[in-house]
Design a protein around this nucleic acid. Sequence first.
DNA 1: CTTGACTCTGCGCGATATTGCATGATTTAT
DNA 2: ATAAATCATGCAATATCGCGCAGAGTCAAG
Lengths: 250, 250
Amino acid sequence: MLTSQRRALISARLVRDGQIVAGELAQELDLSEDTIRRDLRDMAAAGLLKRVHGGALPLAPPLPDLESRQAMSTGVKQRLGRKAADLVRAGQLIFIDGGTTNAELVRALPRDMALTIATHSPAIAALLEKHRAEVILIGGRLYKHSMVSTGAAALAAIGTLRPDIFFLGATAIHAAHGLTTGDYEEAAIKRAIAAQSAETIALMTGEKFGTVSPHHITGIENIAALILPADMAPDTSAPYRQKAVRIIEA
Amino acid sequence: MLTSQRRALISARLVRDGQIVAGELAQELDLSEDTIRRDLRDMAAAGLLKRVHGGALPLAPPLPDLESRQAMSTGVKQRLGRKAADLVRAGQLIFIDGGTTNAELVRALPRDMALTIATHSPAIAALLEKHRAEVILIGGRLYKHSMVSTGAAALAAIGTLRPDIFFLGATAIHAAHGLTTGDYEEAAIKRAIAAQSAETIALMTGEKFGTVSPHHITGIENIAALILPADMAPDTSAPYRQKAVRIIEA
DNA sequence: CTTGACTCTGCGCGATATTGCATGATTTAT
DNA sequence: ATAAATCATGCAATATCGCGCAGAGTCAAG
């Protein structure tokens, strides 16, 4: 790869991602970090970017929305959300759990798709304003930590639904202990939704693998598909591949 | 995440939220609280914010924010919302209708007040995340235009509540025709909530006065208080003053 | 064809920066 | 008044940095 090509790529990435992380780019291009650092140093001297510890930033900050979203490194979650959206078919009733990863799923859903979407997360419901889909909001007492409806009212409302797909978010996943979360009520709700649904699909970011939280949701064998980042360590994801779960890499 | 990005995020949050809570931000960014504290300490030393126990505050009241908000003509809604918030007492159960004016009411509510707040608006519910109040979310089919729960499920859930105050939003208000709105289901829901509540308080911006929408909610005589802008034409508000309604000017 | 100047790249090294944890002090809430 | 939360500090582990050096490739003059 030519130097000028590489520098053009750096400029393009700054526009696209709003940031450059020297170590990541070196690994991606199979170059030493020194080379990237030299590029960044030179380009900073040429006034093309702002050098910071760990990488570089654009001289003028990008759009506020883009900034805040990518600052929180939602790239992984975006990829998971897109893969999940690919599994949805027109006419289905899908249930979407709370959480920022599932929010990315909503953002990835085509706005004009004919769907019925149920959720117990007000944040997810609010995101669906511009979508054509019919939205069923599950009410109840809001559990403050994860901001989803819980309690008897929520359980009763869920009992009337038979979703085709339940997109599940959990706090932790472990080969032996399955999917777990931190709150008793929250776990009960997720269990109830999963029991009503034809299939449950879990979206999990890498740091959750191999960890366990106090309250059990369901075993891995009850998950129809597990969506996880493609760049995970192979031995981390190996136990789940053996459990005959469908693995989707994003 | 790059350090300088994180600090930029902190600055952005200070403008947006008017405060930083160290523990919350640490959890959200998956960092130790020490790192956030160090950021706040350094930024305070650099004169970018004011360090306080538990987090940080902006140095000066965020003028640009206020400016841009009022440029979007939400200034009136903010004033209405503040006056409405003044009517709330600790320990009460209040029901908050949907809409941007009621969103300002939520923003004006003290975050640490002991309350139970019911709402059928996912947007209002999402705003209450940082509040100490218990939140009861009314579920149902989301009516897309105003993004509130409607239908039998919502009506049933409302029937179990006896709110002290219902903060009502409506599309139109007229001395003879009372409060009206554009959707049949929405009107039915608002009627049901008002019927359950000890008192109903309406927040109305100036342009709604003297107008009528197709579906009737309730008459002016059933409104305990009407909060309206102070800078309205006197003859516009005169008919409502004569109806023995309590008028609160904001 | 050979040689030398030049550039680019990767590696090693010591210096610096960042982060998380432990500890004891301080503040806040109940 | 007591418990819990928050804080500052020191320390150790890790990441990143800048610099010098050497090998590989390029190019042009000899």
